[in-house]
């Protein structure tokens, strides 16, 4: 694997995580629990789509075959998407979306803090913009965890169930593939493994402050970053890619 191939792959992973999470959040549009939260979730979705656009645009440049961000986002088959499985989990109920956002945002907070120091200036620039957004996503989901966890018996139960159900998809975020090892060596990427302890500490703090128990299960599901997805992914793509597949080159 050349440095260029590894960077392309690395950018696709980062970009796909943002793209798929954006899609899931956008499913809340017009379905939020209150108008204010509807806007909050779709605002976060827009932050993600902006980040995905930047990362996929840069991935296309690095690959050098003239692929645009749109082509990468809407024309690849399922096994060529490299997002973590947690991103493609269905939006579920509001507690599920909040738990998912906390688990992802805590990871992204650590990841993008590191990527701000990437030797690749473009990636460092994208990270510098992303980190401000991520801080807000993290704060927003943390505050909602407090409210749901310490709210009613039902809201606590729903949040606990969501955390239990999502837990086995969190470990994948800290895996290191061959492309990530190479990116780490080149001081472009970040050591995911090194983030895990800090992540766990931060997540544990928020959840215990929300009266939520940390799941003890240690089994982890993975495969997303190798292109092996859950059954959810095909459904996402059939909806997300429909327009570009039906009307190739369609523009706004």
């Amino acid at each position: 694997m050349t440095k260029q191939e590894a960077l392309y792959q690395y950018l696709l992973q980062l970009g796909d995580n943002a793209l798929i999470q954006s899609h899931r959040l956008s499913e809340w549009c017009s379905k939020g629990p209150i108008l204010e939260e509807d806007l909050a979730l779709t605002n976060i979705a827009l932050d993600y789509i902006g980040r995905a656009q930047n990362l996929l645009h840069y991935a296309g440049e690095v690959e050098g075959k003239g692929q645009s961000a749109d082509q990468l986002a809407y024309r690849r088959p399922e096994h060529q998407y490299y997002n973590n499985l947690i991103a493609e989990m269905p939006k579920g109920d509001f507690a599920f979306t909040i738990a998912k956002q906390l688990l992802i945002s805590t990871y992204e907070l650590l990841l993008y803090t590191e990527l701000c120091h990437s030797k690749d200036e473009t990636l460092a620039g994208i990270a510098g913009k992303a980190i401000k957004e991520v801080r807000y996503h993290w704060t927003h989901s943390r505050d909602w965890c407090y409210r749901l966890g310490k709210g009613t018996v039902l809201s606590n139960e729903l949040l606990q169930q969501a955390v239990n159900d999502l837990w086995m998809y969190t470990g994948e975020q800290f895996e290191m593939g061959a492309e990530e090892e190479l990116m780490l060596k080149e001081v472009i990427g970040c050591d995911n493994k090194a983030l895990q302890n800090k992540w766990l500490e931060m997540v544990e703090t928020v959840l215990s402050d929300s009266n939520i128990k940390i799941p003890t299960a240690t089994y982890n599901q993975s495969g997303g970053r190798k292109g092996i997805h859950t059954e959810n992914m095909g459904h996402i793509l059939s909806e997300m890619q429909y327009l570009q597949r039906a009307y190739p080159e369609a523009i706004w």
Binding site: E36, E37, L39, A40, N43, T139, D143, R147
Partner: peptide, 13 residues
């Protein structure tokens, strides 16, 4: 429901 939520909702809207 609280001042932090009010600030965040105001920011988003």
């Amino acid at each position: 429901s609280d001042n932090q939520m009010a600030l965040q909702n105001a920011r988003d809207i």
